[in-house]
């Protein structure tokens, strides 16, 4: 099973600066792989494009809102 994801980055242990917040969109292979192999996560910073890709692939989406330093 796979995810389409919409976000910036899974920043384990990283405290984001509290300044700007943005929505990002991206692809993640599997939830386990996605967590273990962060550099391979393909994030999509375009919401309509991520929706279209999720529709085409039948995958769910993972949407992230985060502060952008």
């Amino acid at each position: 099973m796979q995810f389409e994801t919409a976000t910036g980055r899974l920043a384990a242990g990283r405290r984001p600066a509290i300044s700007f917040m943005a929505a990002h969109l991206t692809l993640m292979a599997t939830c386990a792989i996605g967590l273990a192999q962060e550099p391979e996560i393909e994030w999509i910073n375009n919401y309509p494009a991520a929706i279209a890709r999720a529709e085409a692939t039948g995958k769910p989406l993972f949407l992230e809102f985060r502060c952008v330093p």
Binding site: A11, R15, M21, I51, A54, F62, F65, C67
Partner: peptide
Amino acid sequence: MTGIDIGLFDYDRHNALYYFIMNADEHLYM
């Protein structure tokens, strides 16, 4: 955030990180 439907993605905006798990129909799972 400019083009985001904040009516759909409603949450406490003072979170530094926030996620939605959803699908292409914009149905929010959690």
